[in-house]
Design a protein around this nucleic acid. Structure first.
Length: 477
DNA sequence: ATGTGC
């Protein structure tokens, strides 16, 4: 471990005040011995840098999938006081409301075994890849609808079931959305991309529930062993990316205007209540809503495929839950034994609200929020539940997935897409992608092992394992 | 992540 970092428990580490100059609170992160081997020094420094920001509460946090990001580490969680604190695009990331949702089908493993046509049909139904274009009739009005009302807009337009909304974090949209704070350029990029999957680690996967760790929670969530599920992982595409780019530029100015001293200019930020901070928050919320609408439209396309191939009505394919893992939100938390509203940044971290929280579906109140953790291509995904431990220790947050250990360019040089596809095929996993590079970029070994990341959050008690899902087919960008 | 790299 880096000099100066202190082990506080088997899986808990502290970066003391003074590790970098100007820290207002300590840093804290979760890590096992195995993950320690691939920990980047730069990511720990970034965690400490975040602790210098005005109004930060308690500590600068990181989950076991911590890695180096823009300004803030990916896997980072930071909460700020609403009057003294700041908001920063670096604390959310470029892919605003990148997130993941899980659909359960009434099918069993035998129904989909060898059914390459299921994956082929999904690949036809969902626009996939870097420049993927929408199959919707998108215009300025549709875009506004998606940005203002998110998944609700999509459901009202016929892309989904009313019951889907209560199964989304925030019920599928943030009211704070401000379309006026979204630039013309961002809008231009958003219009043709409504309902598209994108590229990189984004995917649509057919999975089978292979192991249940918590029968009571699995039953309450609607999951059973052997059940076929469909997982959708995507974000806000070029729109969110442009919003982030635009507002970083604006907030670099505000940093000077409000005399905020930063150890790294990538932490560009503004007071939460300032005009610039409010504009970023509004544009970020609009992008988050666009991403929720995206996942909702893709959900509808996936249900159509199951209906066509297996004659299953949409109503028999419920949404288990939809989580955001790149977003900032105003939430109520207990700080120094007092309840208060704070601004929580989660960047590559998932909300994991525990039992009794008013923001989770009423029928799951005694269990905790479903948490969905996608694996990397060809590796298992996990369903967990939120805990009281998360409420006490991490502002109701847990990990988001695997986290890269190798850059895209490295991966391309080292690994052939064709060989990976063949190796996955031998494991019974059928992959469809627009080109070979899309596969080599996202090869299983360019990621940290998701099972180890999940084990750490489970044992640390900031969420608890419910089920493991193994992939049988995947479409990716 | 991204009309992929000032």
């Amino acid at each position: 471990m880096l000099a100066g970092v202190v082990q506080k428990g088997e899986l808990e580490w502290e970066v003391p005040i003074g590790f970098v100059p100007g820290m207002r609170v300590p840093g804290k992160f979760y890590l096992s011995a195995r993950l320690e081997e691939i920990l980047e020094e730069g990511a720990v420094r970034q965690l400490a840098n975040v602790a210098t920001l005005p109004g930060i509460l308690c500590c600068s946090l990181a989950m076991p999938d911590i890695h180096w990001g823009y300004g803030f580490p990916i896997g980072g969680v930071a909460a700020f006081d609403l009057t003294e604190g700041v908001i920063s695009p670096g604390g959310v990331g470029f892919d605003i409301n990148c997130g993941v949702r899980l659909l359960a089908t009434p099918l069993g493993q035998r129904d989909v075994a060898g059914r390459r046509d299921l994956i082929d049909a999904m690949y036809q139904a969902v626009p996939t890849g870097v420049g993927a274009k929408s199959s919707l009739r998108m215009d300025a009005k549709t875009l506004d609808g998606m940005m203002m009302k998110g998944a609700r807009y999509a459901v009202e337009a016929g892309y989904g079931l009313p019951g889907d909304l209560v199964r989304c974090e925030e019920n599928g949209f943030m009211k704070a959305a401000d379309v006026k704070a979204v630039s013309g350029k961002a809008r231009q990029r958003g219009v043709p991309q409504g309902g598209t999957l994108g590229s990189g680690n984004h995917f649509l996967e057919i999975q089978v529930v292979r192991e249940i760790y918590d029968p009571e929670a699995a039953k309450a969530f609607g999951l059973a062993e052997g059940q076929v599920c469909c997982m959708i992982h995507c974000g806000s595409r070029g729109l969110g990316h442009q919003v982030c780019t635009d507002h970083i530029k604006i907030l670099e100015e505000s940093t000077r205007k409000y005399h905020i001293r930063l150890p790294d200019r990538q932490l560009a930020c503004a007071p939460i209540g300032s005009p610039e901070g409010t504009a970023y928050f509004g544009a970020m919320a609009a992008s988050a809503n666009y991403a929720w609408a995206n996942r909702q439209v893709i959900t509808h396309a996936a249900r159509n495929v199951f209906k066509k191939l297996f004659r299953i009505p949409h109503e028999e394919i419920p949404l288990i839950y939809d989580v955001a893992h790149n977003v900032a939100k105003i939430e109520e938390h207990t700080v120094d034994k007092k309840k208060r509203m704070v601004c929580v940044h989660r960047k590559g971290a998932t909300r994991a609200f525990g039992p009794g929280c008013p923001d989770i579906p009423a029928d799951l109140s005694s269990i905790g929020q479903p948490v969905i953790i996608p694996g990397s291509m060809g590796t298992p995904s996990f369903v967990l539940k939120g805990t009281r431990g998360a409420m006490e220790k991490t502002f109701g947050s847990t990990c988001h997935g695997a986290g890269r250990v190798m850059s895209r360019s490295q991966a391309k040089k080292k690994i052939s897409g064709k060989e990976i596809a063949e190796s996955l095929a031998r494991q019974g996993i059928y992959v469809r992608a627009p080109n070979e590079a899309a596969i080599s970029d996202e090869a299983p070994d360019v990621y940290k092992p998701s099972s180890e990341v999940v084990r750490v959050v489970h044992e640390a008690g900031i969420s608890r394992l419910v089920a493991r899902l193994d992939p049988v087919g995947v479409i990716k960008g």
